[in-house]
């Protein structure tokens, strides 16, 4: 148990620096590492991810929950800090330089290149999560309906999460 906090710090600091385009981009890698450490299985990770979506704030709170599950309050704080500090320090250091290159042509080109990779990573995250939560036809329908409702009806995400939970609680997804 004594090695848990350093292990959490190492995993999430690494994920912080690989998070090209945000926290969702590293979800598959996070799931892979968390399962490989034997901290939980893929279904438990998906449940924690869902729980994190129900909280307000940045979409990185699954990190806090994984830390909490593995190492209690200390684990939650260590995982959260490890996930935000490396990237945050990098941003802090770059903030001054950024102004200077405002009009540099390479800046927009590098951004476009990063975006292409981010799109692939977030699509992969979606498929990895969907594969975990797709247990039967009704659950697949809930996933498709919530994606469609967000894309086409622009419903608030919280309503969609609540609707999914209500359908589940009513025993319609078993």
């Amino acid at each position: 148990m004594s090695g848990t906090l350093p292990a959490l710090a190492g995993v999430f600091a690494g994920l912080s620096l690989m998070g090209v385009g945000g926290a969702n981009a590293v979800l598959p890698e996070m799931q892979r590492q968390v399962v490989a450490h034997g901290w939980m299985d893929a279904e438990q990770f998906a449940a924690l991810f869902a729980l994190a979506q129900a909280a307000p704030g940045p979409n990185m709170l699954v990190v806090t929950l994984v830390g909490w599950r593995v190492g209690g309050i200390a684990g939650a704080l260590v995982a959260t800090a490890a996930f935000i500090l490396p990237a945050g320090l990098l941003t802090y250091a770059a903030a001054g330089l950024w102004q200077r290159f405002r009009d540099a042509g390479w800046r927009s080109r590098v951004q476009a290149g990063l975006t292409a990779v981010t799109v692939g990573l977030v699509l992969a995250a979606a498929v990895v999560l969907c594969r975990t939560t797709a247990q039967n036809v009704p659950t697949v329908l809930v996933t498709a309906a919530s994606a469609g409702a967000l894309l086409f009806l622009r419903l608030h995400p919280l309503w969609l999460l609540a609707a999914g939970a209500a359908l589940g609680a009513a025993g319609l997804l078993a």
Binding site: F49, A50, T133, G148, L161, G164
Partner: peptide
Amino acid sequence: HAFVGLASAASGLVLA
């Protein structure tokens, strides 16, 4: 059971 539904909906949000 509620969590099965919540997680399925959350997957859909990431997909969108």
